Amino acid sequence: MSDGSTDIKGNPFLNFVFATPEPVFLKAIETKTKSPTAQYMAEVIGEVIDTIGSEKVHGLVTDHAANMKCAWPIKKKNPN
């Protein structure tokens, strides 16, 4: 699962949580200096998938934000 949020100071973060079947927090990426474009989101999602291994990823849940919807066609590298 990937979701954007902010800390108590208003700094934006992108969070990644995996279910194994229990939820496991993987990482939070501060996105303060990056614009959350579809291209950037596709790159970050790809890096996370590559880190854990694409064979271990069976699905990814994101919110319905326009940048996330547009990231999927860009991120065709991992068809699993």
Rank of each mutant, 00 (worst) to 15 (best):
C70W: 14
D7N: 07
V17P: 01
K76W: 11
T51Y: 14
V48A: 07
D63E: 04
N11W: 08
V44W: 02
H58L: 15
N78M: 13
N80C: 14
A28I: 00
T31E: 00
K9T: 08
K56S: 13
K75C: 12
K69P: 03
N80L: 15
T37N: 06
W72E: 07
I49A: 07
A66W: 10
F18M: 15
K76M: 11
M68T: 06
K9W: 08
S35M: 12
I74Y: 09
K75G: 10
I49E: 03
S2F: 09
E22N: 12
W72D: 05
P73F: 11
I45C: 06
A65V: 08
A66R: 15
T33C: 10
P73I: 13
G4S: 01
T37V: 01
V17R: 00
I74G: 09
S5I: 08
V48L: 01
D50P: 12
A71P: 02
G59P: 09
I52F: 10
V57N: 07
A38D: 02
G10H: 02
G10S: 02
E47Y: 12
L14Y: 03
T6C: 07
A28H: 02
M68H: 05
D3Y: 01
W72K: 09
Y40R: 01
E47F: 10
F25N: 01
P23C: 01
N67L: 04
N15F: 00
F13T: 00
T20C: 13
H64N: 14
T51E: 15
F18P: 05
V61P: 04
L14R: 02
V48I: 08
K76S: 15
D50E: 14
I52D: 08
E47D: 14
V44K: 01
P73L: 09
L14I: 13
D50K: 12
K69Q: 10
S54G: 12
E22K: 11
T62F: 01
H58K: 13
W72N: 06
T31Q: 03
M1R: 05
T62E: 02
M68L: 08
K56P: 10
M41C: 11
K56W: 12
E43M: 12
E22A: 08
T37E: 02
A19W: 08
E43G: 11
D50I: 14
P79R: 14
S5W: 14
A65P: 07
K76N: 13
V24M: 02
V48S: 04
K34F: 03
G53S: 06
L60H: 08
V44F: 01
E43V: 13
S54C: 15
E22R: 11
N80K: 15
K9P: 02
V17A: 01
I8W: 06
W72C: 05
L26C: 06
I52C: 10
K32W: 07
S54Y: 14
T33A: 15
V24L: 04
M41W: 07
E22P: 05
K9M: 08
G53W: 09
G46Q: 09
K77Q: 11
F25V: 00
T20S: 09
T6M: 07
M1I: 04
A38G: 05
S2A: 13
E55C: 12
C70R: 15
Y40T: 04
M68D: 06
T6L: 04
T20R: 09
K32G: 14
K75Q: 13
I29N: 00
V48D: 03
K32F: 10
A38P: 02
M41S: 06
G4V: 05
G46L: 12
S2V: 12
